[in-house]
Amino acid sequence: DVEPGKFYKGVVTRIEKYGASINLNEQVRGLLRPRDMISLRLENLNVGDEIIVQAIDVRPEKREIDFKYIP
């Protein structure tokens, strides 16, 4: 289970102007929005990149997770 405040290694699977889709595994994925990137710009991400993200909002009833990137 993903817990708010914990850090996870994820893989960038899609990049859109509203954010990047991050997969932690086949069943768990979430969104990294541009506003939640401290020192990383969306255009510097590539599909397949592995990054460390922090879960900031977990809504299991909607199967949604928001991530934050902290270098």
Rank of each mutant, 00 (worst) to 15 (best):
D1E: 13
V2I: 15
E3V: 15
E3D: 06
E3H: 11
P4Y: 08
P4I: 15
G5L: 07
K6H: 10
F7I: 06
F7Y: 11
F7M: 06
F7C: 14
Y8G: 00
Y8D: 00
K9I: 11
G10N: 00
V11Y: 11
V11N: 03
V11Q: 05
V12I: 13
T13E: 07
T13F: 04
T13W: 04
R14N: 09
R14G: 10
R14S: 13
I15A: 00
E16S: 15
Y18A: 11
Y18E: 14
A20P: 02
S21G: 05
I22L: 03
I22W: 03
N23G: 08
L24P: 01
E26N: 13
E26W: 11
Q27M: 12
Q27F: 15
Q27L: 13
V28T: 12
R29E: 12
L31H: 05
L31M: 13
L32W: 02
L32C: 09
R33K: 09
R33G: 04
R35Q: 13
R35W: 06
R35K: 14
D36F: 08
D36W: 09
D36P: 02
D36A: 05
M37D: 06
M37V: 06
S39T: 09
E43V: 07
E43A: 10
E43N: 08
N44G: 09
N44M: 14
N44E: 15
N46G: 08
N46I: 10
V47G: 01
V47F: 02
G48P: 01
D49G: 02
E50V: 15
E50R: 11
I51V: 06
I52W: 15
I52R: 06
Q54W: 10
A55N: 00
I56G: 05
I56P: 01
D57R: 15
V58Q: 03
V58E: 02
R59M: 05
R59G: 06
R59D: 10
R59C: 07
K62H: 09
R63L: 12
R63N: 14
E64T: 09
D66N: 10
D66I: 14
K68N: 05
Y69K: 02
Y69W: 08
Y69F: 11
Y69T: 03
Y69S: 03
I70E: 09
P71L: 06
P71A: 11
P71M: 08
